[in-house]
Amino acid sequence: MNQILTYSVYGSAILVMLIGIYAVLTKKNLIKIVIGLSIMDSGFNLLLVALGYIKGGTAPIFSPAVAGKDVLMVDPVPQALVLTAIVIGFGVTAVALSLVIRLYRKHNTIKIDEIKTLKW
């Protein structure tokens, strides 16, 4: 049972990540590529949080309800890392999209094949 869960959770996270990478590598549309980047990040975030999960654990917050009791808590470090990763991912997405808008202004297209002043 646990084995199945392991495979399915990690497998789906990795699959989402691979879908994102596939989109980045094959798509011709610039916005599609940026969407691929954001999907890639999502997959990774899921993977990392899943790695920090502990069965039967609860959120690492010592609220009055659990204070003083001996409760199992999930690993807080991956959560903190994911928090950072999400915010950084958003920053990168925003910058990427502004680059896309500027490329569109200049070349009047968002197809990657038609923007080829430099060698790709």
Binding site: M17, V24, D41, V92, A96, L99, I115, L118, W120
Partner: peptide
Amino acid sequence: GAEAAFKFLLIGSFSSI
């Protein structure tokens, strides 16, 4: 520059992932 930067950004995102 925007084109070079976009290329750079793509590769850089791969690097970070």
